[in-house]
Write a protein that binds this DNA or RNA. Sequence first.
DNA 1: GGGTGGTGTAAGAATTTCCTGACACCCCCC
DNA 2: GGGGGGTGTCAGGAAATTCTTACACCACCC
Lengths: 112, 112
Amino acid sequence: MSGTPRTGDELVSLMAALASPHRLRILAALSDGRTYVSELARRLQMNRPLLYMHLQKLEAAELVTGELVTAPDGSSVKYFQATPFTVALDLEAVALAAQTLTGTGPAGEQEK
Amino acid sequence: MSGTPRTGDELVSLMAALASPHRLRILAALSDGRTYVSELARRLQMNRPLLYMHLQKLEAAELVTGELVTAPDGSSVKYFQATPFTVALDLEAVALAAQTLTGTGPAGEQEK
DNA sequence: GGGTGGTGTAAGAATTTCCTGACACCCCCC
DNA sequence: GGGGGGTGTCAGGAAATTCTTACACCACCC
């Protein structure tokens, strides 16, 4: 659903989210269908807290979405699924996005 | 010149290289044409050692190329220029790339 | 009760990345 | 000599990430 990011900051976040072997594996695992956290932890052989952390980053980047499903008895399972996305990048697009970067800019001008 | 990365490790490197405001700005600055290091440092207002570091990462990711030009008198200037590139990514491509990741794999199988 | 399987977080160690300051060396020109 | 402009690297600190251990709580079933 998501297309190529628009602002420089979003680009940075997206790139950062994808710049991790663990997260790539998570996405790969989720691309086969939704899965819940503990299952995923087993499959990828990583402990849950770590997995949580990565899932949060992926979620922040809108690459995955989580849904806590509570059974009628009260027990709950949290399913995650990958968000379909497409990102097309080239030098020009990057240069353009860079202009919208906030934070310490190259020079004085800073919109408050 | 470069197309979408092939191996998972390359993907990670590329994403990491692009996941930095400073590096995006560098690319943007270089997209206007080649420039030498000190000039770039002035334009982006960062000290050279730092700039060097980022340039190295960009060069490692093959996003820029550097060329040390030595004048007949012996003085030298190092020009950098951005490499045109295109990267098209989607969930499927990521999932595919993830399979080629080296290092701690999900399970036992490991090619020596 | 004790065991199994879930979710979620807090705390702290280990590691990596980022950034600064100080060097050494080169060339010109006043 | 003393500037001004280059390239390049090294040591060390600051800051952000990553990862582990341990805990809290929930519902089930034997």
